[in-house]
Every structure is written in C-alpha cells, then in structure tokens.
Design a protein around this nucleic acid. Structure first.
Lengths: 142, 142
DNA sequence: CCCCAAACTTGAATCATTCAAGAAAATTCG
DNA sequence: CGAATTTTCTTGAATGATTCAAGTTTGGGG
C-alpha cells in the first residue's frame, strides 16, 4: 500500500492541505475498497481517535472533487468510495448480498462504449454496473 | 399512450389488484419519463386528488418488484422511475442539469457487455450510464 | 352479497447527508 | 522563527427522502 508520504504528495499535487484526517481517510478507503461512509468513519477513528463525521464527509467530498477518490453508488446502496481512479474500470454487484468487485473495462479506453443515439449529448464517460450473484451467495442458495 | 384498460391488464397479469392509485401512478410515470418520486406524487394528486405519499411509495415498489416499472438512480440523484422495461436500454445523464435521455443498447440483447474478469459472479445484466453534457447546457456554457 | 387478504391512510421515526458558526490547524510571507 | 490568513475540523442542529407501524378501507374471489 502507498506510504503516508505518497498520500501526502497526492494531496499537495491537488492543491489540498495535508492533514491527519485526510491521510487517515485515504488509507481507510485504500484498505476497504468500496466501503461506505460509516465503515470509513470507523476505520479513521480506529487510527486517529475521535474524528467528527462531518470532517470525514468533508474530506470525502474534497478528495472526490480533486479526483483522488471515486464515488460509486449502486441502486439501493449508500455512497461508497474507492481509490482506484482514472482507469475507467467498472463494478459487479451481487443482487443478494451487495458485495462489489472490480471489473476491467470490457471494450478499451474511456469512453469505452458508444451510444447508439446520443441525443446530442457530448459523452465523456460510460459507467457500467454488472448485476448478478457472487460465488458465495450462489452456493448458499443452491 | 396506453389506455386505462391496458394498464389494468398489465396489473392483473402481474397478480396485482387494480386500484385507482396504481393506475394513476402508471399513467404518471408514463407521462413523465425518469421522474423522481416527488414529481410522480404531484402528478398523481393532480389526477386523483389527495393521495398519501406512502401509497405512492408502496405502488412504486410493488410495480417495480412486478417488473412493470424500472427504477434508476444516477449518482447524486434520488430514485427515478420509467415504464420502459425489459429491453435493457441505458441512459445518458447530463453532468450539469441532470437531464436524462434514453439510449438503446449498443451491443445487442442483455447482458449486452462481457466483463473482462467476472470474479466468479454470474452476471445477468449490464447497466450502463453515460455521463456528459446535454445540448442545452453545452450551448449555455459556450 | 360477504369475506379477507391486499392496499391505503395517518402519523411518527430513521438515517445518510448537509448546513452553520466558531475553533483549530496548515501554509504563506515577513 | 512567528504572525497572518485561509482552509479545515468540531459541535450541534436541520433536512429530506424513505421506511415503519397500526388501523381502516377496498378489490375481487367465492
């Protein structure tokens, strides 16, 4: 996993101040891929002691706006975050337990798909969510 | 647009009772593609008089579970519904104003895409959201 | 026409997220 | 190095979509 210095460098490059909560959030999201806000808050408190939930929300927004984090939100789920950005990869979501896994882009570089009729929209990204059942749930229900 | 009888038939085929709120919700969603719940509630009240918001939520869930409606929820938006179901089409969302337009599937029948590595998941649907800017916002910002 | 499960009404509760105002900390510049 | 300035964090309350719960009404089979 990236070092503390690596995270700090990313923050500076994005014109953001380097603070303990921000470093902790970066580490937490890195360690818990696709984690929801509550999980991230708990992880951050585990490493720093008490931190306000508002601070975590602020940090998640700032880092997302800066492009250091990516926010995803499958139907019926709260917001989730991941550190893997800039490679336009996608996600598989289990309909049963909600587990999420990364999937590489199926058709090349972003935007990796071309709409049949774009209605005049200028498209710059195609976000794909695959729905199905994860190995564990499939086994449990058979 | 489908007739009242057409909607009633769809409800019966789905083993659901035919009620005025349900017919009104079907018509409202049909008339307001991609509308959020609040818009639907207002449209229903316009045609039926006072109807509890809870009834509309119940109906939307029942119809969605029955496959008569499809629920979509782009990042940062509340739940939206549409009557076009079963054809695995996708959506273009404007990053600026949030306008949504339908887009036919680029690669054939569902699931229209193949994941590079499915991690053992059994995938039955690929949901695609194209992000970009609609003609109006593009013009307004130039 | 009667019955009863399914639907609807009313009213309160939940919970993720946001708002607001002041305190604390991180860069900048002297 | 130390004060000034601005960003970030804390505290505490508010918002708003959605859900829960209990009781009433209604659709449609018998």
């Amino acid at each position: 996993m990236p070092t503390r210095e690596e995270f700090a460098r990313q923050l500076r490059e994005a014109q953001l101040r380097v603070t303990r909560p921000r470093l902790a959030v970066m580490a937490a999201v890195h360690d818990h891929p696709h984690a929801d806000t509550d999980t991230i808050i708990r992880a951050v408190r585990k490493s720093l002691g008490e931190v306000s939930h508002q601070a975590v929300y602020d940090v998640l927004h700032a880092l997302t706006d800066a492009g250091l984090l990516r926010r995803i939100q499958p139907l019926g789920s709260v917001a989730r975050y991941e550190t893997r950005v800039g490679d336009n990869h996608h996600h598989v979501v289990c309909r049963s337990c909600g587990a999420i896994a990364d999937v590489d882009c199926a058709v090349g570089p972003a935007p990796c798909l071309t709409a049949a009729d774009d209605h005049g929209y200028v498209i710059d990204e195609a976000e794909v969510i695959y729905w199905g059942y994860c190995p564990r749930c499939r086994e449990a229900s058979s």
